[in-house]
Structure formats: C-alpha cells, structure tokens
C-alpha cells in the first residue's frame, strides 16, 4: 500500500532561517532513498515548497501527510487538515504529528540521562525543565510538553516541569519554577534547526549558545539538551505514523 502512496512531510519552515527545515528535508531524502513510498516530498507553511507545491508535483493519486510538529496543536488540527483537503486530484490522509509518538518521551529521557551522566549527577538532585512553545491558540501545544514533564517526573528527578515561550510559566522565569539550588537540566521541546530551540530559549535562560552541554548561569549549573528531530531518530517514527490506519 505504501508503495502506491506518496509521503509528504509537512513542516513549518522559515522565510529567514535556512536551517529551520534542514532535518525535515533530510528525512524526506533519506526516506526517498529507501524506496518505501511511491514518492516523498517535504512541504512547508513558511517556505518553498509550499504544501500546495508539494501536492502539485505528485504523480500519485494518494498521499499520506505526516506533520513535522511536536504537538497536536493549532497547525496540526486546524491548518494541515484544511490545506490537505483533497486538492489537485490527490486524496490525502493527515496522520497524527510526530510529537504524538511514544518514542519522543524516550528521546527526551535519553537526553536528560546523558546530561546527568556527564556531570555524574543523581536524578534526585536534578530539576528538569521542558522548554516548549505554548500558544493561546490551542491547548494541545501545552499539553504535549506537560505530558513529557509527567513522564520525566516518574524517573525520580527532583522536579520536572514545563515552561513556555508564550504561556505561563515563562521560560525567562525558570528560577521561580525550580528549587533554589542544585543543577537544572533544560530540554528544548522544539524541532532541531529552528531558532526557538537554538537561540531563543538559550537566550531566555542566560546561556551563550544552544549547544548541548553544561554551562553556569549566575552560579547555577544548567545542562541544555539537544533539540529533537534528527533524521536518524525520526525516520522510523514517520514510517510508523504513515503505516497506521
């Protein structure tokens, strides 16, 4: 069935940052090479190819659209179903976003563990923050981050909370959310390549860069995790989403 179906990875993209879409495009190329789908395209809201361009270029009559988004939020529930309603003679099915896959929690846990191991910190001494976007437009974005915080809290960390760019509690107010002392691990709930995870969040935390690793900010040890979305981590998730009915 997938052999007769086109895959479209639908991402946000950017008119300003060339790197924002890199991993979406790279994943699309990797999946094309594997020959699982009839055709593979990446399409974006804010850069070319647009969703419409990605559809128009297809020769297949059926496409499965996998949202390259971390939350079941405004884009995935409102914009994508509308933009991929049957157009250009292609019957489209929009799947759950990649952020809905259970592997995301595993990836986040792995990033937290890796940071703790570098400094040989015990989980019980470390406060963990999931730094996410959040939006007043849809509660789904917040929920996805809070669900990850719940998953992390089961691993014995001192605390695990979600903080946001556009909702309370704000990332800039992170000190109010964590204990008064001790190390803090911050895991960006953003897809790699975008400016939020690589510049905005580190800036709000007082970090000089968005590189994975430990820094000191005003006497506190801050460990910053790698953003999500590396092609080698995402490829199988995309296939599972596209294969599910």
């Amino acid at each position: 069935m997938l052999k007769e179906t086109a895959l479209i990875l639908a991402g946000h993209g950017s008119t300003k940052n060339a790197e924002s879409s890199r991993f979406t495009r790279e994943t699309a190329h990797r999946l094309r090479e594997r020959g699982i789908f009839a055709e593979v395209r990446a399409g974006f809201w804010k850069e070319e190819p647009s969703f419409a361009d990605a559809l128009r270029g297809l020769q297949s009559k059926r496409a499965v659209v996998v949202p390259w988004f971390l939350a079941k939020g405004y884009f995935t529930t409102q914009i994508l179903p509308r933009e991929f309603r049957e157009t250009a003679g292609v019957e489209c099915r929009v799947t759950e976003p990649i952020g809905s896959r259970p592997e995301i929690l595993e990836l986040v846990l792995g990033r937290a563990e890796k940071l703790c191991q570098i400094k040989k910190h015990q989980n019980r001494d470390v406060c963990v923050l999931i730094a996410s976007h959040g939006t007043g437009l849809h509660a789904g974005s917040r929920r996805a981050a809070e669900d990850l915080a719940v998953g992390l809290s089961k691993k014995g960390y001192r605390s695990a909370r979600a903080v946001f760019l556009e909702e309370e509690p704000r990332i800039a107010d992170w000190r109010k959310v964590v204990a008064e002392d001790g190390p803090v691990v911050v895991l960006p709930h953003f897809l790699a390549g975008g400016l939020h995870g690589s510049e905005d969040v580190p800036g709000l935390l007082g970090l000089s860069s968005g590189a994975e690793g430990w820094s000191e900010v005003g006497g506190r040890e801050i460990g910053y995790g790698a953003a999500l979305g590396r092609p080698e981590e995402m490829e199988e998730m995309v296939i599972r989403l596209a294969s599910a009915n």
């Binding site: 070319e48 128009r56 270029g57 297809l58």
Partner: peptide
C-alpha cells in the same frame, strides 16, 4: 529547483 512547476 522549481517546486510545483511541472505539476502546474
């Protein structure tokens, strides 16, 4: 090079 051009 020109996304969507052939389809259009």
């Amino acid at each position: 090079i020109y996304p969507g051009a052939v389809g259009n």
